[in-house]
Write a protein that binds this DNA or RNA. Sequence first.
DNA 1: GCTCGAAGTTAGTGGTGACTCACTATCTTG
DNA 2: CAAGATAGTGAGTCACCACTAACTTCGAGC
Lengths: 183, 183
Amino acid sequence: MTADERRQEILKAAVAEFALGGLEGTSTEDIARRAGISQPYLFRLYPTKKALFIASMEAAFGRITTALEDSARGLDDERALEAMADTYTALLQDRELLLVQLHSYAACGDPDIRVAARRCFRKLWSTISGVAGIGGERLTMFVAVGMLLNVAAALELDEVDQEWAQLCSKVPPSWLENGDGPD
Amino acid sequence: MTADERRQEILKAAVAEFALGGLEGTSTEDIARRAGISQPYLFRLYPTKKALFIASMEAAFGRITTALEDSARGLDDERALEAMADTYTALLQDRELLLVQLHSYAACGDPDIRVAARRCFRKLWSTISGVAGIGGERLTMFVAVGMLLNVAAALELDEVDQEWAQLCSKVPPSWLENGDGPD
DNA sequence: GCTCGAAGTTAGTGGTGACTCACTATCTTG
DNA sequence: CAAGATAGTGAGTCACCACTAACTTCGAGC
């Protein structure tokens, strides 16, 4: 297998493991095992654990951003927003992406990671804004709901059979319809 | 100093340190140093690091919940919601509480912590609901904005001098006024 | 003034984890 | 086929860290 292919495998494994444990809670050993290689070889292909974490962040954010973009391409603004909400709901099934996002925010105590996380977040933000042609408070609210869904994923609220828990774990169905912000 | 007083000191130090590094990113040595005691003595007063983390979570969530409750006590529903929004904005100054919250969610890979985090979150949720007399989607949106503010605190977006960053770091001024949800 | 318990410390210990070094195996190319 | 590059590993290093054991200090009560 070529180094580049192997790097992809590692990245896939890293996203999965970092989703579970975050930067500090995941060992490079865990990642290597999942990727099916020895732990030292991981360091041949990624210089440091932190670099691998940042790569994982970028992969996870990238997949989310791309999925949203794709689902809304060619639709008019109002339908684009609905489409993105649907897509995000679909992403909920694969908790990996949401959890990596959450762990990225949590790891922002480190300046390098903070810079990378800002870049990823900004990209996500501007993609949504551009594709749906919205801005201002309506955009803020859209992203806010996304953040709540991340928390719901972390808490595994879908396992909790109570009304409030169900409310948190899915996009509110009606809030899209009425344009509540001025924008 | 009595053991109970010391426990309070440790808890204060723990909240501060865990806010910076989270469960895995903070050493008990760091906490002990900040509390001004030797590291082994910490284990006389808290059985494990995890127990101390859970205590820190509960302290942080408790302070938030209490602050919201206090600020809204005696007001009618609509004013209560505004008051709580103001209070949360004020809490933004002290990023400690928001960050401990975020790290609590991130540490939910551990079942014990997940259970504790759900309990804290549920309490926060039901307090807001009870005090403001709201429910359904309007409540969801209120909490969602709170989650976005947590992320903004982690990313230190107030340091970023760009429009989108400013949008994230404060409660949208107008969304309170119009009852956008049903009920 | 002596004892007893509670506050607190110093010096470990066993384990883990990021990262390195020296090595092997395989493949390609002149 | 010789030789260099490329994929990959086993064994180790060094620092850190959660937690323990054994000791000291000191104030209160008899």
